[in-house]
Design a binder for these strands. Structure first.
Lengths: 136, 136
DNA sequence: TTGTACTGTAACAAATAAAATTACAGAATG
DNA sequence: CATTCTGTAATTTTATTTGTTACAGTACAA
């Protein structure tokens, strides 16, 4: 995944929840996270695709949450960010002449899906509102 | 973690379980996984530290399981391989002047530990023997 | 007792992936 | 119509992961 992206997205969304009612700029968000504003905008481009963020262009533009933070679970954020499976074996091309090598990818895939599901289930128990509440 | 390491370790251990009674060489193992034998030896160095593998040096040397595959859970393998937390935010240095930035690392850490625990718990339900059994 | 077939490691190189930067077009405001 | 934003592409830099080479040390077996 590049596991830092989940942290960044959650940080962004937490700030947006706190700054409800205001439009926050990528520069402001980047300042809190301490990364480049372009990275924030890229990350938000993804969050927008998933309906988690809305934006307004032009002068005095910026970002807000796409829906109330009570309706956003951390599982939803996780899934929005996640591209590749968490434990996935990458370009592995195990030896097909070997009994184990021939089948292992399918078994690993099944296992990883299960394991990741357990993690996502746990994340599903917390909403963005719950998380953001910790910051007062 | 470098998520491919878990796959490689599990692949190695599965082969060792199948080749019980024999000593398997790093070259043989590498042949099934289709990676470099030195990598296998490096990975095994770690598994040995955790008691999951034993080795014999010298001519006709090689590797065997350190204990019966029924007594090895996938959680144990996972923990042996894992260095950094799975979802961990790396060298993040969020802005301490920001209310959120100041505290977010501690909250993220707590969350990630919880989430990873759920995943490990799931992995704990399967033993290496269960996994290896699939290959017949 | 010496050649051979292994493991164990360190040091280095190459490939890949992630993060940061630069640059600029396009939108909305005032 | 100048200004201040977002959106996005292209590029560079940096970090991480993976692979390679090299060789010392160990055990066996002729």
């Amino acid at each position: 995944m590049s596991n830092g992206r989940f942290s960044i997205s959650l940080h962004i969304l937490t700030l947006l929840d706190q700054g409800k009612d205001e439009l926050l700029s990528s520069e402001y968000l980047a300042g809190s996270i301490n990364i480049n504003p372009v990275l924030v905008r890229k990350e938000i481009a993804n969050l927008k695709k998933h309906g988690l963020v809305e934006s307004k262009e032009g002068k005095a533009g910026g970002f807000t949450l796409g829906k109330p933070s009570r309706q956003i679970s951390l599982a939803e954020i996780y899934k929005a960010v996640q591209k590749a499976p968490l434990l996935g074996h990458q370009k592995n091309k195990p030896n097909p002449k070997c009994l184990v090598g021939k089948q292992i990818d399918q078994h690993l895939d099944a296992l990883f899906i299960d394991a990741e599901e357990a993690l996502v289930k746990r994340l599903g128990k917390t909403t963005l509102a719950d998380f953001a509440k910790k910051f007062y």
